[in-house]
């Protein structure tokens, strides 16, 4: 039930993020969620978009991109919701590489994006604990 994330390698200098976002925008693609991890030399832009194929098409001419599966877990938009999700994952011993979050137009719902070292195990434990995770088609519905 994982969703598709695109990651782009951006040099750490003015304009690189703007250029990437412009291309996506010009293609009429909506960015549902994003995060940027930065180092001194470069940044990695991670994106959840409304149209993966189109985004790849417009970005790949200018930047290096890679496609990965991540988990988007639904949580209620209230205190303690993220803690509950992290707790069940921690108990399995699965490692979280990085995490970011977004909200949606569905009232009271927020989503946490999890990049983990064992996606099947993480999904299974979330399912066992009644935590809903999104699929690519769910994402299209949300947009």
């Amino acid at each position: 039930m994982a969703i598709t994330q695109l990651s782009a390698f951006l040099e750490n200098r003015p304009g690189t993020l703007y250029d990437a976002v412009s291309s996506i925008s010009d293609a009429g693609v909506n960015i549902r969620a994003l995060s940027v991890a930065d180092t001194r030399d470069f940044g990695i832009l991670r994106l959840i978009v409304s149209d993966v194929e189109k985004t790849k098409e417009v970005l790949s001419d200018n930047v290096v991109i890679t496609q990965t599966k991540v988990i988007a877990a639904r949580m209620s938009d209230e205190a303690g919701a993220l803690k509950k999700i992290l707790k069940v994952i921690q108990d399995t011993g699965v490692n979280i590489e990085y995490v970011y979050a977004f909200t949606s137009s569905v009232a009271g719902s927020a989503y946490v994006v999890l990049r983990v070292n064992d996606i099947e195990e993480a999904e299974a434990v979330l399912a066992r604990n009644g935590i809903e995770t999104l699929s690519d088609s769910d994402m299209t519905g949300l947009l």
């Binding site: 180092t39 991670r46 290096v64 991109i65």
Partner: peptide
């Protein structure tokens, strides 16, 4: 220059 196949979404991998 690295190749697209050598790129990873994880900072730790690149480092």
């Amino acid at each position: 220059e690295f190749s697209p196949e050598q790129f990873s979404d994880k900072i730790a991998d690149v480092q």
